[in-house]
Design a protein around this nucleic acid. Sequence first.
DNA 1: ACGCTAAGTTGACACCGTCAACCACCGCTG
DNA 2: CAGCGGTGGTTGACGGTGTCAACTTAGCGT
Lengths: 202, 202
Amino acid sequence: MNEVPDGKMRRGDTRAHLLEAVAGLLEERGIEAVTLRAVGERAGVSRQAPYKHFADKGELLSVLAARYFERLAEEMISAAEEAEGTPFGRLEAMLEAYAQVALASPARYRLMFGSEVRRRPYPEVHEAARGLYGRLVGVVAECQETGKLRGGDPVGLAALLYATVHGAVDLALARHAGEGEKGLGDPLAIVRSLLAHLSDGP
Amino acid sequence: MNEVPDGKMRRGDTRAHLLEAVAGLLEERGIEAVTLRAVGERAGVSRQAPYKHFADKGELLSVLAARYFERLAEEMISAAEEAEGTPFGRLEAMLEAYAQVALASPARYRLMFGSEVRRRPYPEVHEAARGLYGRLVGVVAECQETGKLRGGDPVGLAALLYATVHGAVDLALARHAGEGEKGLGDPLAIVRSLLAHLSDGP
DNA sequence: ACGCTAAGTTGACACCGTCAACCACCGCTG
DNA sequence: CAGCGGTGGTTGACGGTGTCAACTTAGCGT
């Protein structure tokens, strides 16, 4: 029903335009600029058009958030592939990619974990987030097999790593303009410090 | 000017009532129920009364958030005092208290780090948060002196601990109702795991 | 040719934060 | 004691927002 080859109907086009408009507004002017009226105008439709494609504003934002989770996962994977061959190197690359992507666009990251999305249990978001987490668990397990990472439950270790990188990024984003909490401004340093403490070898 | 002993004028009373109303609404019905009209009604005044005591809604929320930071710091300190005498035991108690307080009232914690407060650089909030962080740095330094914690920059270590406990709590609060990310549901376990990895001796 | 339905539009509503103007009362000064 | 300024409080109004409802349009299958 959606794959009209050309015509000029192009069903489903406005849905993509809407998501694109949300993304543009979000990054250019922040989350509070994302209003349904502004989204409609930017997408070239009226304010109520989104309701033909999404249940409400929350679902619209959730769909975009899910895409961001997927993109973050892809970024981590591609960073791991470019890294040195050792599992530990890949783990390091993944976590650094996570932090860098998050810091590169604070508005996106805030959307992913913000209350607008968190409030409703929209399944796509959670599935995407879980996929990301699953990748992490897998690489951690590999690191343990090679002995570079200490043993124990790989799930617990992955949870520790995930919590730390998320917390470090979130705190760095929360600091308003150069404040006094020294050490909290550089998430990459925090993550590397954790990895250093966890790594077994020299 | 504020210390009218009795009379019936009781200057400054409504300000406290307003903050109390915000706190009540926040915990009973969530952040989105905190509207100036509802706050006024609950405090027994009109909707515009808050503007006589606070610049705007954001400042009202920020003042409450600052108090929550202070209370969290107090809770951590009192937990540390009740703990065993060793610095490491106090550090453990402080971090566990942090997680427990945060989990006990998600709405409070979200307010403290939420966008309404984060957006404006209200100095009280940041000062309170910095005070909390400073305590942590101090105890970490003590632990390093006793040799129970590995050496290195105490600020960096404190940042790692703070990021981890914050991230663990935030992720636990973000999970909507029992999801598939195993290991992320128990912030205390994550924090203890980190402490175990960081502690030097048995 | 004729509806059916999906997509899009405008109108209206309730709610929100906030600006403005107005009122009451206390404590001060002449 | 008269007057008065400021503090705390109120109601009115405005622009903005998400959303419900009703209406229009266009393309499709029968």
